[in-house]
Amino acid sequence: MGLVVSHDHKLANRCELEIKDLQDESFILTEKGYTYRAFLFEKLNENTISHTISMELSSVETIKKAVNNHWGIGFLPLFSVEEKVFKTIPLSMIVTLYFSDMINNERKKVPKAPSQLSTEIKTKP
């Protein structure tokens, strides 16, 4: 995950960003319901970072076109962006926390295999 900006955006010369660097930025984001969008908002709110949402779009391609037209910055999976057209900037805190949260949440949701359940039933007094 990372920020997607046009090559002439004020953040384009940065190699990495912190959450505070997003103060007062205008975002072009996916529609509500995407996990990474919710995670970004959680971190922006935790750090009291003011921001605006200029657009909410359903298509990654449309978000990239809007970024290219300088209508704001995007927050997308980095693999979905061509570096020749856009500048992608990882968010140090966001990337690490997002993936560790995803892993922890998945571990909580993983049901036990039937063989584990039967072993537990047999061994409980």
Rank of each mutant, 00 (worst) to 15 (best):
E46S: 12
I103M: 14
S118T: 14
P90L: 07
D21V: 04
Y34V: 12
K109C: 10
A66H: 05
V81E: 00
H9P: 04
S115I: 12
I49T: 07
T62I: 10
S26W: 06
T48K: 14
F79I: 03
T96Y: 11
M93A: 08
R14V: 01
T96C: 09
I94Y: 04
F27E: 02
C15I: 07
C15Y: 11
S118L: 15
Y36Q: 11
K87S: 10
T88C: 15
M93W: 09
F41N: 12
R107H: 02
I28S: 00
P125F: 10
K20Y: 04
I73H: 03
L97F: 00
Y98G: 12
A66P: 05
S118F: 13
K65H: 10
M55P: 00
E83T: 10
K65V: 10
L91W: 00
N45E: 13
K20S: 08
I103D: 03
S80T: 14
M1P: 02
H7C: 05
S26A: 11
V110F: 05
H9A: 01
T119E: 12
K32G: 01
K109Y: 07
L17A: 01
E61W: 09
P114C: 08
S100I: 08
H51R: 09
I73N: 02
N104F: 14
L117K: 15
E56W: 04
D8I: 02
Q116G: 00
F75H: 12
F39T: 05
E18V: 04
L57E: 12
N104K: 12
E31P: 03
K109H: 10
I103T: 06
N45Y: 06
E46R: 10
L11S: 04
E106P: 00
A113S: 13
H9W: 03
E46G: 07
E106K: 13
